[in-house]
Simulated scan of single mutants.
Amino acid sequence: MNKGKQPTIKEIAKRLKISTSTVSRALNDHPSIGLVTTMRVKKLAEELNYEPNRTAIFFKQRKTFTIGVILPSLSEAFFSAAISEIENLANSNNYTVILGQSLDDPERELRIINTMKGHRVDGIILSSAKNTREFDYIAVLQQAGIPVVFFDCVPDLVHTNAIVSNLKTGMHEAIDTFVSCGHHAIAFINGPAHLPASKEREEAFVEALANHNISLNKDYIVYTDLSEKGNEQAVLELLNLSTRPSAVISFNDYVTLDAMNAVRKKGLTVNQDIFFISYANYPIWKYMENPPMASIEQFPGKQGALALQMLFDLIDKNVAGGTEDTSLTDGQRIVLESKLVNQHL
């Protein structure tokens, strides 16, 4: 064999004086090949540092055994938990994960999608950038036979495959908890108004107040673009009201961190002058001296694992039925209930 040249099945077959089809079956533990022959083939393959031709496998099985995962930010604990479960499940199924961060930039997100499409990933798991408004890429990927499963930040569209969290259950439990502690002046710091998740949270907030016969004070609902400055401005709107709220529910834990910092700058005390509950159970809360009153868990790890399992099912259907398989656009959805956890006080 020439130096630097990768060994092939033909090379192994020639040395052992058997057919290439026998070598191929032996390497794949086919029952028609005897144990002795299988051991001889595998031993020589190991000595020659033989590696399977991934391109050939792709053409034969119509899979690259790679999936793309695109997230807004890997630095967020929520997405770190999700990707850990995704990679564990992918590895156990002999898949490789290609990661991309959109940083909530729609143009960057689209570039990553196109790059993954060019690398022929078998499917994509995506938590959409918060500023994304156009989803034409779904149809483009469908035409290429690449299914997409969304989770967490999911477009408000029919015929999309997604794992979603029912944010209302956690909101109702949060309001119930505040009211049981004597709070009636309850405010809500919401995210960008265009997000489906923001709309769902707000609807639940209004419903939960009504369940306790608490009149809605529209001044108690404020919005943030989720930047540090936007988060601080949002809570200051509440603190500067003539009758400020005694309790606040926040869009997420990063909003809460900035809000609590702003509260302290105002000379107020968290969990004394004002109390917080927020989505989505930041792991570091347990190490803080004065954490929020409670958290609303959205189970990111479970969302990630379910998203990948759904993607595997779609990939298998795609391989079996071709790129025109309508199962890729059935719009399957799995809903997980959010839940109030870690009541710290």
Rank of each mutant, 00 (worst) to 15 (best):
A82V: 01
L141F: 10
L141H: 06
V319M: 06
L126M: 12
I138G: 00
S84G: 08
E11P: 06
G267T: 05
S127F: 02
S21A: 15
L99P: 07
K229E: 14
A307C: 07
A210C: 03
A56T: 05
N261G: 12
H212C: 11
N28Y: 07
H184P: 00
S198P: 06
Q272K: 14
A90F: 04
L48K: 04
A193V: 08
E202T: 05
I112N: 04
L157R: 12
L209G: 06
D156T: 07
R111T: 12
G191P: 05
D313H: 12
P7E: 10
Y95E: 06
I296H: 05
V206D: 10
F65M: 13
E203H: 12
L328W: 02
K317A: 15
S24Y: 10
S165Q: 11
V179G: 11
V69D: 04
Q332P: 00
V341I: 15
A162V: 03
Y137A: 04
E289Q: 15
L195Q: 14
L74F: 15
F150H: 01
F312I: 03
P291M: 02
S127W: 07
I284M: 09
A294N: 02
K63Q: 14
V36L: 15
G191D: 08
K339N: 15
N342I: 01
E202M: 14
T22W: 00
T329R: 09
L241M: 09
V158L: 14
E87K: 08
V121S: 02
